[in-house]
């Protein structure tokens, strides 16, 4: 199967310049590959760097060393060294990311929030909103809430809006940071279904799932993220 993400020797160390240059090593020398049509679950104890790895794949965090390549428009493109225009294009077309928290402009209606990624790709408003409605319906967000901004919604509702926003585009690569963390069984099942459908379409999925039931249902492969050894932390 085609490689969609290729990570080689990835090391991440946070340097806190205002704390006397304190170094916080997260992980070192990670090699990782994600394939087309496969769901890879990042696994590891709290603090092992799962989220840091996921964020690095989205170019939200910069690697300290090592490389990340993603397949964009048919070719493997290096994230580090890519200019902002290319990174923005990769995010618009190739990589979707569902974060744990919804961050949107206040007062924008939910339907528009969900439809936005499609709109940014040039899809007509009516068509984008129709698709947004379908997803919101599947995720059990009642229609009377669609015209309201999600800011006032419960945590679980906001997360579902976030999920709808992430799944509205058929991205070749989809990154999921605990998408089912505050969902009930019924909605978690919908997310499992959405993941399965995306995978069948050929999407490479990389995700963090604490719920073992969900994990077992979606994982084709488990990748163990090894934390930096405690002795290493002490040494720096």
């Amino acid at each position: 199967m085609q490689t969609m993400i290729e990570v080689r020797g990835l090391t991440k160390v946070f340097t806190l310049h205002n704390q006397g240059g304190t170094q916080l090593p997260v992980f070192r020398g990670i090699d990782f590959t994600a394939k087309r049509g496969e769901c890879t679950v990042l696994f590891g104890e709290s603090g092992s760097g799962k989220s840091t790895l996921l964020r690095s794949l989205y170019a939200n965090y910069l690697p300290t060393s090592g490389s990340i390549h993603v397949r964009h428009r048919g070719e493997l493109v290096a994230l580090s060294g890519a200019d902002s225009q290319t990174l923005l294009q990769i995010r618009r077309e190739t990589i979707g990311y569902v974060s744990q928290f919804l961050r949107v402009i206040p007062r924008v209606p939910t339907l528009e929030v969900v439809a936005e990624p499609l709109r940014l790709r040039g899809v007509e408003t009516a068509q984008a909103q129709a698709r947004a409605g379908e997803l919101l319906e599947r995720l059990h967000i009642p229609q009377r809430l669609w015209s309201l901004p999600p800011g006032t919604f419960s945590g679980g509702e906001q997360q579902r809006v976030n999920i709808a926003r992430g799944f509205i585009v058929d991205y070749p690569i989809l990154l999921l940071d605990e998408p089912t963390a505050s969902l009930d069984r019924r909605n978690a099942a919908t997310v499992v279904e959405l993941i399965g459908q995306a995978r069948d379409r050929g999407t490479a999925i990389v995700g963090i799932f604490h719920d073992s039931e969900v994990r077992d249902a979606v994982a084709d492969r488990i990748f163990h993220v090894q934390p930096q050894a405690a002795t290493d932390r002490m040494a720096s």
């Binding site: 310049h17 205002n18 170019a59 939200n60 965090y61 910069l62 902002s84 923005l88 949107v104 402009i105």
Partner: peptide
């Protein structure tokens, strides 16, 4: 919420620039 890219200035010079969320979530310069 508004900017895709960010330039950070200090004492007349650009000290850092990049995608907005990267600059804010993983700032490199002191």
């Amino acid at each position: 919420l508004l900017a895709q890219r960010l330039i950070v200035m200090r004492r007349s010079q650009v000290v850092e620039s990049g995608l907005t969320d990267q600059v804010l979530d993983d700032p490199q310069h002191a």
